[in-house]
Design a protein around this nucleic acid. Sequence first.
DNA 1: GGTTCCCGTGGATACGTTTTCACGTATCTC
DNA 2: GAGATACGTGAAAACGTATCCACGGGAACC
Lengths: 360, 360
Amino acid sequence: MEKRATIKDVAEAAGVGVATVSRVLSGGSASPSTRERVLAVAAQLDYRPSALGRNLRQRRTGGLGLLVPDLTDTFYGQLCEGVLACARSAGEPVVLGSTGGDPEQEAELIGMLLEQSVDRVIAVPTGDAETWAPALRAGMTVVFADRLPPEAGRDGDRDPAESALDDLMLLDGVAPRGRVPEGAARPLDVPAVLADDRAGIRTAVRYLRGLGHRRIAFLGGPGHDRRADAFREAVGPPVDEELVVFGTGSRDSAYAAASGLFQSRPDLSAVVAGGNVLGEAAVLAARELDLRVPKDVSLVMYDDVPWAELCAPPLTVIAQPGRDMGYRACELVLREGTRRARTVVLPTELIIRGSCGPRR
Amino acid sequence: MEKRATIKDVAEAAGVGVATVSRVLSGGSASPSTRERVLAVAAQLDYRPSALGRNLRQRRTGGLGLLVPDLTDTFYGQLCEGVLACARSAGEPVVLGSTGGDPEQEAELIGMLLEQSVDRVIAVPTGDAETWAPALRAGMTVVFADRLPPEAGRDGDRDPAESALDDLMLLDGVAPRGRVPEGAARPLDVPAVLADDRAGIRTAVRYLRGLGHRRIAFLGGPGHDRRADAFREAVGPPVDEELVVFGTGSRDSAYAAASGLFQSRPDLSAVVAGGNVLGEAAVLAARELDLRVPKDVSLVMYDDVPWAELCAPPLTVIAQPGRDMGYRACELVLREGTRRARTVVLPTELIIRGSCGPRR
DNA sequence: GGTTCCCGTGGATACGTTTTCACGTATCTC
DNA sequence: GAGATACGTGAAAACGTATCCACGGGAACC
């Protein structure tokens, strides 16, 4: 456990100044002879520049922050893999935080990142604009993935992913449509990578409609407000608000919400689950209540997770490219500063398996 | 986006020296009056000590490293959640790396952690002792979770989790039994948190035996050597080595291994999958080959993941406490230095669902 | 009342790096 | 051949913190 060699050691051993060593290793100019000598000495001493010194000097941590609600949710696992893949190719370390869907924990983690001088973070936000204000105020580069924080002064018409772009593979640099009410809290001006929820939900609802379903429910979790809105829009007025229910994030609460939904509204014949945890809960709750899928109730689940295919029956899903979303979000956060990036919307795909059938 | 206040600013505003501010914030001694004044000023300036400066000063990064093979694998998601929970309660940031089951990537990530001066790592190792040598040589505190690196000079009798402790909830500070051959490569002296693989596999094999199965296969992935050994021991000699097959880590390769196994040995009647990705592959491959579970083939899968219950049929599993393993591993790595810790073995549990039946 | 001890305090230093600045030499140009 | 230009180089400063050390003053003790 010898202590690591410093740049000074290398400089001394190579008979040059520290500045020269730094230049050689940073790709600066140096004469071929000295460059070679420095490189040889550095290799021989197994010298690795200390990120600590460098970061302190340039007053920023090289790393990226990554905040997700729950790593047990396979979709976020995919998203993380995407971020990590991109970060690795950029040589950036990633510090990870799991918020558990709790804004307070999220705020705490933001504070931790601030303390670490991590100035670039990609997050699946849990808290609202207020939670993220400190990060932005500190000049952090933030990119949201998968969702946006709820907006204080909501008006259903403004949606950063304005959708209706079935052919458009991705949308970069959209100008926000619709004027923001003067008094309302300004929405966060933060780039984001989102799935085309509106199109995804609409396709699913149309599909279910085509199978004859009229009473369709939406089962959401925290952060699924955009999807719920898309659902409301897709089923069209009048919206039966009793058929739009939310869990609070935990698997238990998702199960409770699903079970409650099935019991209070036995007339429903199809449900759209806003995430894979909700879908899982729906399957479990249906089974517990002796509702057969798809005979008694049809189910479409957001997120194409590997196990969707293993289910009984295999689950029809709205697939969103989790890994890609992570990768692109990371690209955005890395590119930031060079060019101001805006929202990116990735396409969803309805993958039809066996969990939907005609209305009984 | 004002720049952050430094300790100097606080000192100046409070009319004291920087040393005093540092002491107050680090819990050192100070008079009540100055302490109060400093605290007030710090709060008012929204001062947060820079981890960069502190870390440089004390020549270490506060943070923890966490290396897992694949976040898409739900078990590792659980493990990560455990680590993060423990790390958060200790106020330590966690930098995450995903090795993809590739020793080369793992080595690269270790190098990255070294560069960041992260001196404490918890890892699900992918590479061997050689991969980890640089980390140990640099004085890193390493704790392995879920598995150990393969040992150069293997002898089947030495197993850090000596098992046979069905009642013992956990085993702390076991002395390695059996002498290490003189010439053989010394096993890494690294604390670890493992599941009681031997007991888990043995229980599963006994269960299958009780159902009448005689040709039982083991389907493993990288790092499942201990489980394979436990399997060999459980079925007892002679071991039909054709029934012990491995995938390389990817879902595709797992599927290929499972499919190949089923096709080359149609006489097998039960399979033990060494991990949930392998279990998933086995279900898929069986279905593709029109083998019904459990009628034609029985299946026991390692890892109790939420979707095991959703499967058709619900999967009988060997549950290991992923979250706990992460939490304990993190505790170990934090405690290290205070007291030299050794291997911890956590119990497994056979959860019987519907994927096993009597031999047809 | 004088000496000793202790505690609160501030100045200075070190951590390892990048970057600026200035210096010297070698080459080019007129 | 003398001036100007370019380039390679090293000394030094700065980043924000923790900690060592020295200094001062008040209290306690003899």
